[in-house]
Design a protein around this nucleic acid. Sequence first.
DNA 1: CGCTACATGTAAGGTGTTACATGATTCC
DNA 2: GGAATCATGTAACACCTTACATGTAGCG
Lengths: 181, 181
Amino acid sequence: MPTHSQTQTAVLGALSIRPMTGYAVRENVQNVLGHFWSESFGQIYPTLAELEREGLVERQRSEHPRSSPFAPTAEGLTRLRELLSEPPQPSRPRNGLLLRLFFGRQLGVEACRQLITDARAQAETQLAQLVAEREQLTRDASLRDAAPYILITILAGEYGARASIAWADDALATLDELVAS
Amino acid sequence: MPTHSQTQTAVLGALSIRPMTGYAVRENVQNVLGHFWSESFGQIYPTLAELEREGLVERQRSEHPRSSPFAPTAEGLTRLRELLSEPPQPSRPRNGLLLRLFFGRQLGVEACRQLITDARAQAETQLAQLVAEREQLTRDASLRDAAPYILITILAGEYGARASIAWADDALATLDELVAS
DNA sequence: CGCTACATGTAAGGTGTTACATGATTCC
DNA sequence: GGAATCATGTAACACCTTACATGTAGCG
């Protein structure tokens, strides 16, 4: 068991929704999973090669071997279920925004206001994206079976984004009081 | 500029609030910053040594050199302000819970419910901790100047935790509908 | 005087990103 | 046939954690 990381999980999982090339896996990780997961080329290709060696995925026949998609084998699906059953590894938090605000006294009120305003705008953008994705999800018949689960993850993003927006307003008000006093 | 990471920022920042030993820095990172930041021994000690070499921190005189706290020098404070002014580096998201729920179809409804229930309980615990810390903050006179900024970061945690709880209830309801249909 | 907490440091190893290198396919 | 995109792979490097190694201070 060389890889203790969750990269195998992400790759196998992506292929379980639809067979695809490594290139497409990366695009999907960026676009669809991007709100809560990330992988780079440097991870995806070695992982695919490893999964193929272990017989957990195989390339589907195609005239052009280069563009033939990978699909999970039966053992691959079994392995995926095992991996998904392991308890989620809590990733250590690294929030650069809050790190800066925590030491905001050194940074100054104005710079802090700017950071919070930027974060608020980012959250608005993300929220709009998620809402759009959610509507698109209801229209994609091919995802019928996976849709409820995908919906849940999109909802998590929406709740988070709305919380960020409300927090930003609250935080800006707190700083206003500070300046007034 | 050897270190592009934000470890220097965290260490210098901690010392800017109160001079302390490397050991204490680590405790503070775990307890206070722990909700949104993390550093390990293996990072903190080398970083402190580097900062000392660069004249950005120095040990305060004390009978026992071993337990004498580090304090930022004037240049150290300047450097801290520079570091804080750099734009926050967005950390790549790695949410093991949402990764599992996204592929929830493979995992099964029951296991998903359990994951969400666990996450909800965790959020409740965290929320209680944050509320306690917030109340304690108003009582610590030594933090007077930094308090409003610390308050903002605690609030961010509270908003996030409350969002997690609301999301969990929503998600569980969504799964209930799925089972019913 | 032994236990616990304080305090420092390093070495090995795993993880993950970036940059580079290479070529195929498709579309105009 | 040239450009953009698709597709794969690797090597170097940055980052970070864990485990180990070592010793001190204070307290009962």
